[in-house]
Design a protein around this nucleic acid. Structure first.
Length: 477
RNA sequence: GACCCCUUCGUCUAUCGGUUAGGACUCAAGAUUUUCAUUCUUGCAAGAGGGGUUCGACUCCCCUAGGGGUCGCCA
């Protein structure tokens, strides 16, 4: 078997979205699993839909995710250029070959004419395909109209009676009859090729072995197979991935909700979690494992374990998975990732030891990376106390608790967790108080909130001097 | 509408003819003896329906239903 070469071929019309990421990821995993090559090819053949900066965004998103292509824009490679807009001569050369072979013909019909024709056919409950009126044109007339500069496209002349067989790696054998197939436009009137021609030519020239793409391409695959035949080329293996769905089971589109990869990253999802989660949307390992690193996915991934049915994107599970990564990734790594957020919030995290203690405590209750700063402010600055909590602080019982613990802490310099836990426990007995009556005043005094992590953690983070300061302050309320 | 694809707990899925149909998320309850989390335990919850084939079907075949995709000078 030839060395695996696969490509991710997006059109630069916006940001990388979840669906695109899943396709790209499977391309990537498949190539890595078999020691092959992943190529990024930009399908910028629609001049009307180009979005400036889209390619940069795309590249940047993949970079952020740690997915590196082997060939593509910026990276180069032996099969470039990797922008289809830079390969126009190539497409025209092959289009010419199709004309010579009699399987492509010019069409001068206007958009309006086509619309009318389709409407008419639909009214008659017929399949709305081009009626080939321009195929009747004489050679002389065609030459004359082209010479006069009349706008025209090039169409592929599909066979009349034929059943195409697609051997899909995931779905098996699929049959599609040509009655359902239109004479596809392959060169548009602006001289650009359509996807069908460009993708086939490039996939062949770039020696792509497996075309891994979304299921939405299944119905037009016969056109592609036919093109391979016309050129006398061997077609690649077809791999049509199940779609990613919205909760209502419609195709996950750019329209509905926000599905750009960047926005998930900005919302505080870790790339590790996003990649892991997206990989599991349509693929599952042989065992019950759910958590995989990118490297582990590379070694485990095979097409045989890709499912056929579409998968709903379930945010709740992504949240859970993100929490798993937040809790289990190395502390230093996590601390580095969130550092900019702390700096942005104006928190002084120059005390590295304290910062790491904070991260360790905060990570246990975080779902998103963006949860860190809000949960950490209490360790770095004075916060407002709710009126209700303030009132509780003013009660005699509360003052008793604070006054009791103060001198004990004062006598300590750098207590460890065990010492602090003992001290805190002793207080419940010494004061004959328990539960909220005892703990809540301390919670509020030290963390400005009745709900907080365990007290010994807070004291450890704050240090004795700051702890005493907060207790004194609380007693003045 | 036509064609194509798909169909196991609400969701992601395991099962490649013989299982008490397993795991994960969500949800509920309990424990971890302050709270919020974390963690752990337990629980709720599924083979779309109908025919075949077979000693035996979630698994193979057919029909029906439902969902999705495609039907552009968009990809």
């Amino acid at each position: 078997m030839n060395k695996v070469r696969v490509r991710f071929a997006p059109s630069p019309t916006g940001f990388l979205h979840i669906g695109g990421l899943r396709t790209a990821l499977y391309d990537y995993l498949y190539a890595r699993h078999y020691g092959g090559t992943v190529i990024l090819r930009i399908e910028d053949t629609d001049q009307n839909r180009l979005v400036t900066g889209a390619v940069e965004n795309l590249l940047n998103s993949f970079h952020k995710l740690g997915m590196e292509f082997d060939e593509g824009p910026l990276l180069g490679g032996d099969y470039g250029p990797y922008f289809q807009s830079q390969r126009l001569e190539t497409y025209h050369k092959y289009a010419q070959e199709l004309i010579e072979k009699g399987v492509a013909y010019p069409c001068f019909c206007s958009a309006e004419t086509l619309d009318e024709m389709r409407k008419d056919l639909q009214d008659k409950k017929l399949f709305p395909k081009y009626d080939r009126r321009c195929l009747q044109l004489s050679k002389a007339e065609i030459d004359k109209r082209i010479a006069s500069g009349e706008k025209h496209v090039l169409r592929l002349k599909m066979p009349d009676e034929r059943t195409f067989i697609i051997n899909d790696e995931i779905r098996g054998q699929i049959e599609i009859d040509t009655h359902q197939l239109d004479d596809q436009v392959i060169i548009k009137s602006d001289g650009f090729p359509t996807y069908h021609l460009a993708a086939v030519v490039d996939d062949h020239l770039m020696e792509i072995t497996h075309v891994i793409r979304g299921e939405e391409w299944l119905s037009s695959t016969p056109k592609h197979i036919f093109l391979y035949e016309c050129f006398g080329w061997t077609a690649p293996k077809w791999v049509h991935l199940p779609l990613i769905l919205n909760p209502d089971r419609s195709k996950l589109s750019k329209r509905m909700n926000d599905v750009s990869v960047d926005s998930y990253l900005e919302k505080g999802y870790l790339k590790e979690a996003l990649l892991n989660f997206v990989a599991l949307l349509g693929w599952h390992g042989a065992d019950d494992r759910e958590l995989y690193t990118l490297e582990e996915l590379c070694s485990e991934f095979t097409l045989e374990r890709v499912s056929k049915a579409g998968a709903v994107f379930d945010l709740a599970k992504l949240d859970w998975m993100n929490g798993q990564y937040i809790r289990n990734l190395p502390l230093d790594y996590l601390a580095d990732i969130v550092k900019p957020q702390y700096l942005n919030a104006g928190l002084d995290i120059s005390d590295e030891v304290k910062y790491h203690k904070v991260i360790e405590v905060v990570r246990s209750r975080a779902t998103l990376l963006t949860d860190f700063v809000p949960c950490s402010e209490r360790y770095y600055k004075e916060l407002d106390i709710e009126i209700k909590d303030m009132e509780l602080l003013r009660t005699e019982t509360s003052k008793g608790v604070l006054s009791w613990i103060l001198p004990h802490l004062q006598a300590m310099s750098n207590p460890d967790a065990e010492t602090l836990k003992n001290l805190i426990n002793n207080g419940t007995e010494a004061l004959a108080l328990k539960g909220k009556l005892y703990y809540t005043p301390l919670n509020i005094a030290l963390s400005y909130s009745s709900s907080c992590p365990e007290l010994h953690n807070i004291i450890e983070i704050l240090g004795i001097p700051e702890t005493l300061k907060r207790l004194h302050k609380a007693l003045t309320f």
